[in-house]
Design a protein around this nucleic acid. Structure first.
Length: 257
DNA sequence: GCGACAG
DNA sequence: ATCTTGTCGC
């Protein structure tokens, strides 16, 4: 997996590539996508993956795809992409095939982009494999390249008084790996924004800010709501499967031999 | 052994 | 990620 990350990392573009990104007002941006996965509590093999596309700047849901999928790899810190990206790439392909006109101009991804142990988080990974501009949006700081959640960091967070306030995350390497953003006037908990693919950090922060009705940007929030609701329902309704039992592969495997 | 550990 | 209720505030 290390080899694979290094190979794909070479294809990451950390700068803007589209006309609307040159516009401080984001004029020309019409569709923003969001992805998220939710997991049933005990099950390590399945998940509900959802991809939504919202209109911009209205933030109305134009497209939604939410379904149970099989996940192959377990979650390992630093390798989240290997667990979540495969099914998300499938979701993007379905969208491109079934509703090409609703293709998002940028995708908000749960997790980090360049703010990663090897500079290639899930937002970069998904971006490279889909070719879509991606932005990493993490709810927690991944301590990397000298960045730590010490008292100084907490003080910097306290200094973010108004929504939209930010401060850069500069690693000991001198590189700015991401931006801490206060996305809501209500919550003092910030968001950790980083470049995923084909978007510069400044544009990334601008987009996320413009998508926040609450702390979590609307595209990701809508994807999150849908996937966890799907899990919640199917977790509370194994009752109605009792009437006509067509599924009995487990019993066949037992008695068959 | 101790602490970290996106989702 | 998931386990979990009420509660305080606008």
């Amino acid at each position: 997996m290390l080899r694979e990350q290094a190979r794909l990392r070479a294809a990451v573009l950390a700068r803007d590539t589209e006309p609307w990104q040159e516009e401080p007002s984001l004029a020309g941006l019409r569709r923003v996508g969001g992805v998220d996965l939710s997991y049933p509590k005990g099950d390590e093999t399945r998940a509900c993956a959802s991809l939504v596309v919202l209109s911009f700047p209205e933030l109305q849901v134009l497209y939604e795809d939410c379904r149970m999928v099989a996940v192959s790899t377990p979650y390992v810190a630093g390798f989240l992409a290997f667990r979540e990206v495969p099914v998300l790439v499938e979701a993007v392909r379905r969208l491109q095939q079934e509703e090409p006109a609703l293709q998002p101009q940028v995708l908000l991804v749960d997790g980090n982009g360049l703010l990663h142990p090897r500079g290639f988080g899930v937002a970069c990974h998904l971006g490279v494999l889909t070719g879509l501009p991606c932005i990493g949006v993490a709810k927690n700081l991944l301590q990397v390249d000298g960045l730590v959640k010490d008292e100084l960091h907490r003080e910097q967070i306290r200094s973010l008084r108004r929504e939209g306030d930010t401060f850069p995350l500069t690693g000991s390497s001198g590189r700015v790996l991401g931006m801490v953003l206060r996305s809501s006037k209500n919550s003092s908990r910030p968001l950790y924004i980083s470049v995923g693919h084909k978007v510069c950090l400044e544009t990334a922060v601008r987009v996320v800010r413009s998508c926040c009705r609450y702390r979590i940007p609307e595209p990701i929030r809508q994807a999150d709501i849908r996937s966890r609701e799907y899990i919640r329902k199917q977790l509370c309704s194994p009752l109605e499967a009792a009437s006509s039992g067509p599924q009995s592969s487990a019993r066949e495997a037992e008695l068959g031999d």
